[in-house]
Design a binder for these strands. Structure first.
Length: 260
DNA sequence: TTCCATGTTCCGCA
DNA sequence: TTGCGGAACATGGA
């Protein structure tokens, strides 16, 4: 379920449970989850260490362990589980055993996620060309607006592009555009400044709202589009009908009446 | 059985 | 150069 609010929730979960404990074993259960690192190297550099800091940028989570940082990306189905005992979660791909008998499992059913080591989160963000994190306090409307300037193409495509803004995914982009009454296919150069401001503030409001609900979309207010992602549904904000299309290769829901 | 999925990347084409 | 459509990846659930 990993868009920004989910990954923020995972980051807090990691920080709450898995810091300052010695890693006594690193169990890579499926090597395919590792990104450009050999299993032996991954294990060697983490075993015996303690994680002592967690950071997030967009959908990427980083946890510092000595000289290196664990990097996790959750793909479509990634998750974390901290537990005690021998019952590893079904789709565990990497399990960290801590002294004291607890474990942190990185689960990923569909294997679109990845685990790796990086020298630093900042260097990784630069190397990958990731855009700013929308919740970074230093990320202002003016910076947001500059990122959209001189571009064409559908607004949804831009908001989905991680090299422009890092962290938004299919559900949250649809939600932001629904709540700002903007059609997902509207060209960005045909969006007025007051609408761009609305997108910026609504984006932050929705993300913070979702984080307050621990990244669980199902707990978002009933008037959110999230609960009405079905062709033919009644729009919870007007008398329109929910329609479905494809933008940026992704199934897109929007209200055929109030989103222009 | 068939279709779909909250992500990312790569390729070809306009 | 920019943007977009399509396919691929792996796998469970409706």
């Amino acid at each position: 379920m990993p868009e920004l609010p989910e990954v923020e929730t995972y980051a807090r979960y990691f920080a709450r449970h898995a810091l300052h404990q010695r890693v006594v074993r690193v169990d890579v259960r499926d090597e395919r989850i590792l990104d450009e690192i050999r299993r032996e190297t991954f294990v060697r550099k983490l075993k015996g260490r303690e994680f002592d800091e967690v950071r997030r940028h967009g959908k990427h989570l980083f946890a510092r362990a000595g000289e290196t940082w664990l990097h996790l990306h959750f793909g479509m189905t990634g998750d974390l589980a901290y537990y005690r005992g021998d019952e590893a979660p079904r789709f565990s791909k990497v399990i960290f055993d801590f002294e004291g008998g607890t474990h942190l499992a990185f689960e990923d059913m569909r294997l679109f996620g990845l685990a790796a080591l990086v020298d630093s989160p900042d260097a990784f963000v630069i190397a990958k060309g990731l855009g700013p994190d929308p919740l970074d306090p230093a990320f202002t409307f003016d910076r947001f607006d500059a990122l959209l300037a001189r571009r064409r193409g559908a607004i949804k495509s831009l908001l989905m592009s991680q090299e422009i803004i890092a962290g938004l995914g299919n559900l949250y982009v649809d939600e932001i555009l629904f709540q700002t009454s903007i059609h997902p296919k509207r060209a960005v150069d045909r969006i007025r400044e007051n609408e761009r401001r609305a997108v910026f503030t609504t984006m932050r409001r929705i993300l913070n709202e979702a984080i307050r609900r621990h990244g669980r979309e199902t707990e978002l207010p009933g008037r959110y589009l999230f609960h009405h992602r079905e062709t033919g549904e009644r729009c919870p904000r007007c008398d329109g009908t929910i329609k479905r299309t494809v933008v940026f290769g992704r199934t897109t829901y929007y209200c055929g009446s109030h989103q222009k």
